[in-house]
């Protein structure tokens, strides 16, 4: 298996295979940054604006990861899996929802907020966008755990639960945000396979720490 693309978003910069694809110093708050990053893709997708920060981050990372990849054509939609990790769950939107209920004189829980208090919704958004019907797993870990990610995906691939995988780490807490996503595909499906790194824990860590 190969890592055919990686995307890293943090500190107002988006890199794709270690090349900067979007960067801005004009905006210094996350919501403005991620919106600018999304707009740089020239995509029309009004649902983006309804998402919480975590989903927006994962969504933009996945858009860069899958740009011009037509992977939905190359793999059966039910064989494209998502395996994500995150530390803070949906903490920011959790706090927002808590604020809507804490004051009984101003008690208006919002379904559009509440639905995002489940962190796996970010994977749902990516599946909806790309029509992926495959495996979904979200692990909550203190830190990015390349070993756990690699071991789990390896078993899932060996058992043929999926043929290709979008995997990585997406975490937001206030202004601390980071998404690191990988596209993992079998050698046989890639024409120029020598150009890519082998999918293993050491290479995942290398890409993460570059």
């Amino acid at each position: 298996m190969l890592i055919t693309r990686s995307v890293h978003i943090t500190h107002q910069r988006i890199t794709c295979d270690n090349q900067t694809v979007f960067e801005t110093s004009d905006v210094n708050i996350f919501t403005e940054f991620i919106k600018a990053g999304f707009k740089s893709l020239n995509a029309t997708y009004p649902k983006f604006y309804k998402m919480d920060s975590l989903s927006k981050l994962a969504f933009v990372a996945s858009e860069f990861l899958l740009r011009d990849q037509d992977i939905a054509q190359r793999y059966a939609p039910e064989s494209i899996g998502l395996v994500f990790q995150n530390a803070a769950s949906s903490i920011d939107i959790d706090k927002d929802h808590q604020l809507t209920i804490q004051d009984r004189a101003n008690y208006f829980p919002s379904p559009a907020l509440f639905v995002y208090t489940l962190p796996n919704i970010m994977m749902g958004e990516i599946c909806i966008r790309n029509k992926f019907f495959g495996e979904n797993a979200l692990f909550i870990t203190e830190k990015f755990d390349a070993e756990l990610l690699y071991n789990h995906i390896t078993v899932m691939l060996a058992k043929h639960k999926m043929d290709a995988c979008i995997a990585g780490w997406t975490n937001v807490e206030q202004e601390q945000y980071e998404s690191f996503l990988l596209l993992i595909e079998p050698e046989t499906m890639v024409s120029n396979s020598k150009e890519f790194r082998t999918f293993d824990a050491a290479n995942i860590l290398k890409l993460y720490t570059i």
């Binding site: 009004p46 208006f108 829980p109 919002s110 379904p111 559009a112 639905v115």
Partner: peptide
């Protein structure tokens, strides 16, 4: 306008609020 089921529930909240 292409609104969905969550939007409908949000309008319910808006009406009450």
């Amino acid at each position: 306008l292409g609104l969905d089921s969550i939007d409908a529930l949000e309008i319910i909240v808006l009406l009450e609020k």
